[in-house]
């Protein structure tokens, strides 16, 4: 059974220091076992300026088992699958400890963006490129950031405006857009079914 009391506490803590960390965790639906985490791309890396979303699924035994985390935003990084978003990070596997939290796990993922480990790759193609042609790697990673990690953030105001014009409350529009990770169509679907 998931310790939902702890999950609630974590969410509160995380929103309290969003200003400082830039890291956000919000429930996807109302059951708290599926959440979405958001991390800003670290400054001075090809991911700078991007906002990366991570799908989080809590196993039944959380916090005794690690949360399952997977990039929902496409990212070009040796330790993240460019296809599935799967992350190769020890604390999400055998090095997990219940003293870690969703926030610290997301911080570790952010640190992984800053410090790739190509010798322990998740995506062999990216890792090869990182090792053999670093400049091209940086270019590709930056291009992917521009293409996949910026669109949702950039267009938010326009999306909010369009949905408000359809007659939905602005506050509701914002929370809904947030909950679905900025996907306008999904948000509309949710708003209509609410």
């Amino acid at each position: 059974m998931i310790d939902f009391g702890r999950v609630q506490k974590e969410l509160q803590e995380c929103s309290k220091d969003f200003e400082a960390s830039g890291i956000k965790v919000s429930p996807k639906a109302d059951n708290l076992a599926r959440l979405i985490g958001t991390i800003p791309g670290p400054i001075g890396t090809p991911y700078e300026g991007g906002t990366f979303q991570i799908d989080i699924t809590l196993p039944d035994a959380y916090p005794f088992q690690p949360p399952k985390m997977q990039f929902a935003t496409k990212v070009w990084h040796p330790n993240i699958s460019s296809q599935s978003g799967a992350i190769c990070l020890d604390i999400l596997k055998d090095q997990w400890s219940p003293a870690l939290t969703l926030k610290t796990a997301l911080l570790s993922i952010q640190a992984l963006l800053s410090a790739p480990e190509p010798d322990d790759p998740q995506d062999a193609v990216v890792a090869q490129q990182y090792l053999k042609d670093y400049q091209t790697f940086v270019g590709t990673a930056r291009y992917w950031t521009e293409t996949f990690a910026k669109t949702s953030a950039l267009g938010v105001e326009e999306k909010v405006q369009r949905l408000v014009e359809m007659g939905f409350l602005e506050s509701l529009v914002r929370t809904t857009l947030d909950a679905v990770g900025g996907d306008e169509n999904l948000a509309l679907e949710k708003l209509c079914s609410a």
Partner: peptide, 22 residues
Amino acid sequence: ATAEEVEMEDISIGGYESDPDQ
């Protein structure tokens, strides 16, 4: 290739219980 992939696979087809290693 990796345990991660297997775990992700498991999510999509619904199973995942305790890890025997643990």
